[in-house]
Every structure is written in C-alpha cells, then in structure tokens.
C-alpha cells in the first residue's frame, strides 16, 4: 500500500501534461498480440530444451571424420574433410590425423586440431599432403578430444 502511494505521488509530479493524457488509456490489442506471440515462442523454446535435458542419456561426443574431396594444389594435395559429432556433448580440441599408407606402411602423416565440434554438428577443414592420397590408401581419424 505504502509503495503504491509513493509511486503515484512520484509519478504525478514527473508527468508532463501530454503524457498524463495517454495514461488513462487501456493497452492496445496489438500489445496483447505481441505479448501472446512472444510467450508462445519462449514456451516452445523452453519445451524443446526441457525435452533435450530429459532425453540426454549418453553425454559423450561421437566423432567421425569423412573425406569430402581431394584436390591438387600448387605444392601438393589437399584433402577436404568433414568432422561430424553425432553425440550429445560438445568435443573441444579435437585432433584429426590423416595418414597415407602404402602396403600397410605409413608414408605420410598430417594433423590438425579443431577447436570445437558442438553436439550433433559438423566442422569442415583441410589436411595437406605432398603425396597423392588417391594413389595410396588414405585414413582419416579423430585421435582425441577434451570436454570444453
């Protein structure tokens, strides 16, 4: 009660006549529409996050590395790859290693570290080799990660 009195006393002094005019009006319908729409959007988002929070069981990343294409560059070959995380957790500092093998023997190795691969997301990158990966056997694999 005390709050209310103070509020009206304070506002009464601060109002300009023009503002005083508009204070008795009821909120426009548009305001309720905007409020209702916003509430729906926020509730949908909360529902989605809640659903995920309840259904997340294995909280580990699940990493896979796929070759997209091999291209010839000025001083060698570039292997474009896609590192996919199918798990429910984000992997940080993911080390990707590419090896070229001839008759089961590794003849060249290239490495790259990806900062983050979020859950159910992918990151693209490239590894550079001096040997032609298409002539031998190319192996790409994630070697390790940390929790962010």
């Amino acid at each position: 009660m005390g709050q209310k009195r103070q509020r009206s006393a304070k506002s009464g002094a601060a109002q300009t006549p023009k503002r005083e005019e508009s204070r008795n009006k009821k909120p426009h319908t548009l305001e309720w529409v905007a409020g209702g729409l916003s509430a729906a959007v926020i509730l949908a988002m909360v529902g989605f996050i809640l659903y995920h929070a309840l259904n997340t069981t294995a909280i580990k990343p699940d990493l896979r590395v796929l070759v997209e294409q091999v291209e010839v560059t000025d001083d060698g070959f570039r292997v474009d790859f896609r590192a996919v995380n199918r798990g429910d957790a984000t992997a940080a500092g993911v080390e990707i290693e590419g090896r070229i093998e001839r008759d089961g023997e590794t003849i060249e190795t290239s490495r790259i570290t990806i900062d983050y691969i979020p859950a159910h997301s992918r990151q693209r990158g490239g590894l550079l080799f001096s040997q032609d990966p298409d002539r031998y056997r190319l192996r790409l694999a994630a070697k390790g990660y940390t929790d962010p």
């Binding site: 988002m45 989605f48 996050i49 979020p118 859950a119 997301s121 992918r122 990151q123």
Partner: peptide, 9 residues
C-alpha cells in the same frame, strides 16, 4: 553447421 540444440543454447 551447428544443430538446433547448440544454436538454441
């Protein structure tokens, strides 16, 4: 390239 959940987060 991020899934819906990381984007929402």
């Amino acid at each position: 390239d991020a899934a819906l959940m990381p984007v929402l987060m």
